[in-house]
Design a protein around this nucleic acid. Sequence first.
DNA 1: CTCATGAGAGAGCATTGCTCTTGTACGAGA
DNA 2: TCTCGTACAAGAGCAATGCTCTCTCATGAG
Lengths: 253, 253
Amino acid sequence: MRATVVKSGALVFSHRSGSVQDMTASRTARERVRAELTREITDIARRHLATEGAGGLSLRAVAREMGMVSSAIYRYFPSRDDLLTTLIIDGYNALGEAVEQADAACPGDDHAGRWVAICHGVRDWALAHPHEYALLFGSPVPGYEAPEDTIPPRLRDVIVMGRLVSQAYAAGALDPPALAGPPPQALHADAENLRTVMPGVSDDLALRAFSAWTALYGWVSFELFGQLEKTIFDRRTAFERSMRIMGATLGLR
Amino acid sequence: MRATVVKSGALVFSHRSGSVQDMTASRTARERVRAELTREITDIARRHLATEGAGGLSLRAVAREMGMVSSAIYRYFPSRDDLLTTLIIDGYNALGEAVEQADAACPGDDHAGRWVAICHGVRDWALAHPHEYALLFGSPVPGYEAPEDTIPPRLRDVIVMGRLVSQAYAAGALDPPALAGPPPQALHADAENLRTVMPGVSDDLALRAFSAWTALYGWVSFELFGQLEKTIFDRRTAFERSMRIMGATLGLR
DNA sequence: CTCATGAGAGAGCATTGCTCTTGTACGAGA
DNA sequence: TCTCGTACAAGAGCAATGCTCTCTCATGAG
């Protein structure tokens, strides 16, 4: 697999960079068809995922639908888990994008509004893609270990929330209520950790924001996994109310 | 997977039952053996569940371990889903019991302490039985529809929380902070609904309590499903802090 | 003692993930 | 333009799975 033409000065770094991934340019016809088929496989797999769920995703079924024999699919994905991994990465990216758009649709200085919009962004995406959400946030499929590649996409949504909190804090728009004493010193390191996506805020605020974040996903998971079944009926309203309360614990009003 | 094929010629029912919960006193020997074998199946299944997870629970493997042929197990459970259902019901009961005990271990008038104890009760049980927790609160297994029988056991834990909130409210021990205006009228029906496990409290309080409840499970699910992986390290402390904040939104201090 | 009934055994079907071997068409280097 | 290595697909096969039959036999109520 040798590139036909090396156009940029990549030659200089060619011995250093082991992982080259610029496959956007049209290479040979073979590689083009390979990329096309790979995309088609993931598309079909995503559709099966949406109808059957993660457990029902079958490589053989995907192959069948493509008119391939089952073994041929292993040319593209060495195992079912590898297919799952790309679906997971795609899922995190799709969710992250939805959240980014929800945030961007609000005026930058309406911090409380942005918070609610972000929450709705998560919930709406989850309701629209329940099985993908389950793949990302449900019980991990047994024997499957998420590789490192999934980490950056996974952070996209939380980064949006962190940015909001930091901006609101910097703008002096936060008026957090006194709910408890200062957080225990033992949590300083974790708060410091959280500040990588939430720069500038206090330990207390970072921890509260993360709590609100888990509450958001707690609600959505409850709703999607059937735990609200005979309990909450006006779910959108109840969700928004709950998220407003959570936002209020951060001082977003 | 080892085989350990045990061809037991006769079923020995001289096993000391000593069981406490046989409401129908020992009927015919046949029925005794049947009850015993049913229990043994669920025990083995629960062990497999704990090691392999829900997806890896195989009727054939359970049968093999019992020295039965695979088809024989269908005399006891008509399908894999039925086995799952009894495991789910048992799981809810075990969780509910753990939560009840956690609550009971606190002085009745220490409402804030009881709240934290209940939260730890949920989390501790979940950490001790991760796969069972995943079965109860994780992504629903595709094609599986939880039957009605699972509803009462599922309410055991939430009833404990509701009782606490009602008692604290009745004792005048709640001092909820002003976090938002009154809840929308649209949620009155849902709040009324919540009052079946939380009698006497206001709409606002019922909704806040339910929010805290979802936040609790949100945290535990995040922790168990790997979402806290490179983020929170002192998890017990962070969890308790988060739950204290949630309790404070109810006015528990 | 009789005999319907409950229960285990075994074969079998359709399905899965995955491997191995064999045939084939492409396409880069001569 | 031809050749030959390579990428690819096909097919058979293995070890599992859930579940359904049928056959046989011991149990235990009448």
